[in-house]
């Protein structure tokens, strides 16, 4: 794990990683061994929008089944990186590989907005997630199973408009999970939720990730959320990975523990000091 990181990261990032030495330890290997997730290797990734170079050479290896959080200020390129990983935008230079051929159903995205079809009932919305298997006979059963996983089986015949914000996002999660993806890309999925709903959604996310073992990539502006959920936190500054921090705390995680709080404040101080420099 550490060696994989070493090869994937340029020297400068390794040096900054040393700042986090007290917290950084090897991610537990036993969980990764039994994962259904796909590993992810990114080399020399660049992306510009017009004259604005958003990503300036990203090199990154994510082992199969790891939960990675990407944090950074707005406009640092974290969402762009996620969209490239999910295949939503075209790459300018570099490569992203999953180590093998992937089907579209293997990679799923969840956005800040639930993006449910208002004119389809909850169950039909989840079935959208089956992709090419939508017409298959067990579509209903699979969608119901996914809804049960997120605790909304009793809402399957409701219209999305009657659901609360948190429930809508859970339906969106069920839709993303119903095809049993091997990589789940999450673009600030909890950003629009209130504090309590957020925490219960974080627990739900952690639980389904542990159950299904996909590789999770979470973009968030909330460092506490990143530290609470991820095995590893990447800090992106000005289109590059500035820090790569491993979170070794056991799961399920105790919120507000001294260890996580310390890690959170040290990542925050990095983000804020970058702010001072500019």
């Amino acid at each position: 794990m550490q060696t994989a990181l070493r090869t994937a990261l340029p020297e400068t990032e390794l040096a900054s990683q040393a700042n986090f030495a007290p917290h950084a330890r090897v991610v537990r290997e036993e969980r990764l061994a039994q994962t259904s997730g796909l590993p992810l290797t990114i080399r020399g990734l660049r992306k510009s929008f017009g004259d604005n170079e958003v990503l300036r050479g990203i090199d990154l290896h994510i082992p199969a089944g790891q939960f990675v959080a990407i944090v950074g200020k707005s406009g640092c390129g974290k969402s762009t990186l996620l969209r490239l990983i999910a295949g939503l935008d075209k790459i300018d230079a570099g490569s992203i590989s999953f180590g093998q051929d992937v089907k579209p159903e293997d990679i799923r995205v969840m956005f800040q907005e639930p993006r449910l079809l208002p004119w389809a009932r909850v169950l039909a919305n989840v079935e959208v997630g089956l992709g090419r298997d939508r017409a298959s006979q067990d579509a209903d059963a699979r969608a119901e199973r996914a809804l049960t996983e997120v605790g909304l089986a009793d809402k399957r015949h409701q219209w999305p408009s009657v659901l609360s914000g948190g429930q809508k996002q859970r339906v969106a999660l069920a839709r993303a999970l119903v095809s049993r993806p091997r990589v789940l890309a999450l673009d600030e999925p909890l950003g629009a939720l209130d504090a309590l709903t957020r925490i219960s959604m974080q627990r739900l996310l952690e639980r389904v990730w542990r159950d299904q073992g996909f590789t999770a990539i979470l973009v968030t502006h909330d460092v506490a959320e990143a530290v609470a959920l991820a095995d590893r936190v990447l800090v992106i500054e000005e289109g590059r990975i500035a820090h790569d921090v491993v979170v070794h705390a056991g799961r399920p995680r105790a919120r507000g523990s001294v260890e996580l709080a310390g890690l959170e404040s040290s990542i925050l101080s990095h983000l804020l000091s970058a702010d001072d420099r500019t």
Partner: peptide, 9 residues
């Protein structure tokens, strides 16, 4: 929603 539809094939 259109982007979502495309993503889901």
């Amino acid at each position: 929603l259109i982007e979502m539809g495309r993503i889901y094939g």
